[in-house]
Design a binder for these strands. Sequence first.
DNA 1: CACCCTATTTGTTGGACCAGAATCCCTAGT
DNA 2: ACTAGGGATTCTGGTCCAACAAATAGGGTG
Lengths: 229, 229
Amino acid sequence: MDAVVEQIRALIADAGLKVGDNLPTERELCTQFNASRNTVREAMRIVKAYGLVDVRPKVGATITDNRLSRAFELFSFNTMEVSRKTFSDVQAFRDLLEVGSADRLLDRLTDRDIEDLYGINNRLAEISDIQEASEVDYDFHTRLISILGNDAIMDVYKVMKPVVLRIMQKGKTRRSYKTETYSEHAGVIDALAARDRLAFQYRLRSHLMIGFRNFSEEMEAVGLTKASA
Amino acid sequence: MDAVVEQIRALIADAGLKVGDNLPTERELCTQFNASRNTVREAMRIVKAYGLVDVRPKVGATITDNRLSRAFELFSFNTMEVSRKTFSDVQAFRDLLEVGSADRLLDRLTDRDIEDLYGINNRLAEISDIQEASEVDYDFHTRLISILGNDAIMDVYKVMKPVVLRIMQKGKTRRSYKTETYSEHAGVIDALAARDRLAFQYRLRSHLMIGFRNFSEEMEAVGLTKASA
DNA sequence: CACCCTATTTGTTGGACCAGAATCCCTAGT
DNA sequence: ACTAGGGATTCTGGTCCAACAAATAGGGTG
């Protein structure tokens, strides 16, 4: 089996396959490697897990390079012992990612982005569940990051999702997301639409700080220095 | 199938299995998940590829934690060069992390940090191997990041290490790290020591750009202009 | 041009057998 | 009677096979 994995790797290397090219079909690989389809499939799953190929029905295995994504995903399996320091580190990280990338963000910003952001934010008005509201909040920030077009940053943001969601949920227990979170987001988008970098950074940073401050007080009040897995 | 992977992960988490414990046998998991053995096996290969379990004949799947080493293995595969988009995304990410955090960096900077950075950089002078020089280069930037005291950022930087090393190696093939890399680093540290934020940002950004530009030319020379999907 | 149909390919199932490691049990020696 | 050794048994992952389900790309038809 490991031999088949090695053969697939060798095939990719020897054939000089580039991103976008396709591997032979599973059944072809069976005859080529003198192995059963199950064995070839198991090997292919490994190669896929390594982020080297993307396999779709009817189309086969296409060469990709998602290795960095996989590497980050490995950390999402983390035991997730969410300490207070983890929260504060993640929040500082978010500030760096979202506020710090303002220049490039404005460079790449399109009208479509602004529409989408308004659309996502409007979903907040029709929600009555904190859990769901946090998801929307997360979607908003993810969509913001996506403007950068940087897969590495997106992957990292996705990995942090569980922690970010917890921060958001805690932050929303003490205030109304329908008014405060909504208007804060709207202010951020308005600044974007006006291409006002300073306003964007100020409002976004304030938004991040407010949520986290509420969350911090919450933690101290309940005495939660550690959370679940 | 992906569902089975998720079920296995959930099983590990919910049962509170620790390293050294064993999962149920494949056949047991079949009945438990209502899936065929082949499907369970494919899922198990993925979990194994993620470094979460170590599976041996007759003994079953034992919980382990090889995730970090797996993350590095992803890139030690010589089957494929890291894609250009991955490189450029990572480099942009580094710029954001290192240059963008200048404010907080200067806030937390201590004399000890500066000493350490000079010390690391001085190691460059006694090195004749590009591989080793890249390690020192990486150590320098890691030490810089460490000033932030942010574990989340440090973890991300560590995961990117293989890619960053490749960028550095490529960048060093065309110039002398003993003179150029060394003096660029020294300039960055000097700016830090003088608490000159603008100089720090300018020099660090230039340093990052130079390495990447050299690398880009290298790739184009070989004809690798294609990006990932 | 839009719609549908078919052939191809991956996804999943159930079964079978093999090799080897762990375990149990029987035997022989003390 | 007790223990150590060795062999038989059993259990488990590893591989293979044949068939069907589901998805979909690509062609054919109106």
